[in-house]
Design a binder for these strands. Structure first.
Lengths: 187, 187, 187, 187
DNA sequence: TATGAATGAGCATTCATTCAT
DNA sequence: AATGAATGAATGCTCATTCAT
């Protein structure tokens, strides 16, 4: 494991525990056991570490969501997408907390956020296509994406608040609510 | 306006702009034009300023959501509740940041958090009643609350990301999506 | 009990626990429950509180040592003086610690030390008289006083290190050693 | 001379002049000409500077008292021991202040204190042996040690109070008083 | 590639003291 | 006699970053 990778991993863990601003470079240096100068050899500054981490995780999101989608049935596709994201967050709490904090924090410049948005292209495409098929109503795409993502996040938080004891029934209910909200006509 | 009030107001403004951790005491001191020691005469430490602000803001919280609800029409009630919360967050960015970022962090003692969470009670009653009237499907109450709350939050985030330029059309779409998700039968 | 007296008593206790420099005015204010300005009404500054305490305690020393001296026998007088001081310190640990810290600290200006020295006049007189009677050798008076005082202090420290379990035999040995050191001829 | 050594040396000098608590870090920084952060690069905090100094000085301590003792004559041995300790303290005011002021305070961990107290061992042996030779009376060893040590300390204090102008005659008197106190028979 | 000494601005907080009431 | 708001210099310490090796 390269020093650079160690720094990235350590930073991710520290940020997960303490938040971004609470995580100082000196802490990263001490925890990772990497020398002061070594860190600066690999990264221009603190911001660059955060940015790099953010991009890594964003890319992950993009691939995860569209994994194992069934071919035809849009509703099933939607459910799988939903679950993909949900279980990714549940199984990678680091990534979840990180993405939550990142989303709000002014630490991430807009340019970076937009850059990350490219990985959501596929999700976006799904919504457009489903609207084209007249299954979803022609809502604003951004609104749809945001609500879809937000619903998953809400459930993950509920899952965490319940200490991991969230019944599958609840998850299915949430997926159903999510889905119904976007529909053009009632089923 | 007392020096104490000036400090609170200044802190409120700075935190709204920059976030909590990014707002240093020296910044508060310089901006408010109050002396170093004066601040510490009124507050034990930085945390106490935050707590006091949090308490002030939390007082509104409980009443905001259920304010000015129309009598009969459930759908209109839902829309007003949704907007109440949305515009409250939009107009009180600090309250939003607190509820999103801080309420979940260990920076605020649990006692304070619980106090702020009381507004859930009224919302809960609304959902139960609407289920009883067979307008909403009998989903898990917690799931419904969480998704309702999450949807508002999602839109506020979108609103913020767009620098306040979110069309009213989008907000109405979000309310519609939110509402439709919970319905028992299609309208 | 006047506010002034409260401040003095509180200061003495705090200094006893923590030392002089570790005891701040704000601590004295908080602990004594006296207002900021009240303290400054009675004392010009921190130094004046210390000085006043020091003089009070010094006066105490002076009277204590010469208390209940038997008339004729010099050796017995010496033993009583020794014990007077010893038990005063043992029963007033505050005064002991305070006098120990004061003696060394540059916080007490030389003028104050000299002022306090007047109370030792009687002790000084005792040594002079005993030298005149050719019982004590004509050592430097200051040296004698310092060693006398130091011997008592040494035993008090031993007493404290032993948690108060110092046999009377040891005390008597110390008095004997002290006495013999000053003698002109062997007994 | 390394920056670290400069800091230690400067601290040593400042503390000797002013005492520990009166010596601030900023003073050390200004006097030593070392940058703020540099100091903290080498030492964890203020306490660590003190500890490191204490350890350095304690190394001498054990060997000093019993240094250069003449072979046969017990009285001369005693005088040399006395002077060794006296001049060590006089020439190493910091060592004296530490042993007097700090060794008893909670600022130094017990482990360090014990390390410094080892020099008692040799003195103890000397007293036992001299009692065995029937030159000293069979007083409690602890009492003897404490009084011996206390006498030296008393004279050092006197020396300091006189600003270093203590006549050699006084020192010799003190040694004589010390010695006579312990004797079995008059000389 | 890797190290760690060096920097000084900045941090939250405490201090002794003044002053108007 | 008593209060407590107000002050700003000072304290111990952390920070992100630079640079010579």
């Amino acid at each position: 494991m390269s020093k650079k990778a160690i720094v990235l991993q350590t930073t991710l863990e520290l940020i997960t525990k303490q938040g971004i601003r609470a995580t100082s470079l000196s802490q990263i240096i001490k925890t990772s056991g990497v020398a002061n100068g070594t860190l600066y050899h690999h990264f221009k500054n603190k911001e660059e570490i955060i940015s790099e981490l953010y991009l890594m995780l964003s890319q992950d999101f993009g691939t995860v969501v569209m994994r194992n989608l069934p071919e035809e049935d849009t509703k099933k596709q939607f459910a799988i997408m939903w679950q993909n994201l949900f279980y990714y967050f549940v199984n990678n709490p680091l990534a979840f907390i990180f993405s939550e904090q990142i989303a709000r924090s002014p630490e991430i410049p807009t340019s970076l956020k937009n850059q990350a948005r490219q990985y959501y292209k596929d999700i976006e495409a799904f919504f457009r296509e489903t609207i084209r098929k007249k299954e979803f109503k022609a809502y604003d795409i951004l609104v749809m994406e945001e609500l879809f993502f937000g619903n998953v996040v809400s459930l993950v938080k509920l899952y965490e608040n319940k200490g991991g004891n969230l019944k599958e029934r609840c998850i299915n209910q949430a997926i159903e609510i999510s889905w119904k909200g976007f529909l053009k006509k009632a089923e």
